[in-house]
Amino acid sequence: MNETNRRNERYNEYVKSVTPSTSTLKSLLNSFWIGGLTCLIGQIIFDLYKWIFPQLDATNITNFTSMTLISVAILFTGLGFYDVIARRGGAGSFLPITGFANAISSASLEFKTEGLIFGTSVKMFSVVGPVVVNGIFWSTVAGIIHLIISGLML
């Protein structure tokens, strides 16, 4: 067994040494400008809404901004060019909220063939599930801890 493990280890090391890695600088640069641009567009939309609807407060405008970004990303996914951008952008296109939208809509599109109930509805969160579940769980924990600490302070 030991012999096998040693061979496997050696082989894995060898494979690692010959496997080409992503060209670091180029992919970092791509994710930088695509990610940066997405955020910049978000800020521009935010400022635009603030200018059009001066009576609204910042929270609502933030919500509208992310709604707009999400809708546009989903439309791009449907038209089939979000993944073309993403192949270039890498983290630059999955880290912003648009990547979240793309993950939901791509899964929902993919499983359309099994029907709207058993396909789309069941599998919609198959890719983005970890984010939603962990987000809800840990934010609840954060809320409870906050409550306990503030209770202790009193």
């Binding site: 994710s31 990610g35 940066g36 641009l37 983290a91 999955f94 880290l95």
Partner: peptide, 13 residues
């Protein structure tokens, strides 16, 4: 906004 957003994505990448 551009620089910081890009930077977060670079860290992820």
């Amino acid at each position: 906004v551009f620089a910081s957003g890009g930077l977060f994505c670079v860290i992820a990448q």
